[in-house]
Amino acid sequence: MNKKAGPMFYVFLALFVFLVMFPFLWVLASSIKPVAELFGDRAFIPFTDNMTLENYESVFVNYPFLKYLWNSLVVSTITTVYAVLVASFAAYAIARLKFKGKTFILGLVLSVSMFPQIATISPIYIVLKNLGLTNSYLGLIIPYTTFTLPLSIWLLVTFFRKIPFDLEEAAKMDGASLMQTYWRVILPLAIPGIFTTAILVFISAWNEFLFALTINTDDAYKTVPVGIAMFEGQFTIPWGEVTAATVIVTVPLVIMVLAFQRKIVSGLTSGAVKE
């Protein structure tokens, strides 16, 4: 951290940022071109004299894109709230209480988070189909537990462990019960960690593809990633709409990332770095 950055460094940095961002910039530039300029020679010119928003309009008029966004929002929000709630109890117990088998449980949680989704999909699909839950919000919220719950527990355990044990001891001394200690002492201190976990869980639920693709095949219940991936035109892929939809999905994410970048980074690296 004490090394000084020279001018060459900034050149490198600018190049790196440009390379990473280039696909987005190009897609952004394409999304405001008229459809005719997406093909042929004009396809390789990033600027247009006939800037238009017709692609954006078409995304909402010709495709149930608003519905996709709504579905994704509902599914991801409910999944996040319930996964983080259930996980917070478990994580608190694992991080703060003394009982046998903790290492085993943590190992189990970690192994489950490594399960390939494809290995669980056939029974989950058949059960949901028999219960009549395919093409419903619940049909995605239930299977999303397979990855959101282990992820939440894993992250929350690291956050809970960082809270000083002295506080808990002090609360005990003052006669607080374990549950009181949890609600009054631990939880308020854990809020930032819980929030970080919620952001990461939300993103993982928002981005999920395989379950969404197989379980909710009806347009009325499709989520954004599947909805966009299934954009089809009459003869070719409607690149105008695809680029516009990509921009619409990316912009909120960019805002979210800018707003919460510190939290996201602390969440992403918390489980992975040994201090």
């Binding site: 897609v27 981005n207 593809f209 990633p225 991936a229 695809v242 680029t243 990509t246 999905v249 960019v254």
Partner: peptide, 14 residues
């Protein structure tokens, strides 16, 4: 963070 945060399916289409 942006490439990481965007849904893989969407970036694949991109």
């Amino acid at each position: 963070l942006i490439p990481w945060a965007i849904p893989t399916a969407v970036s694949a289409f991109m």
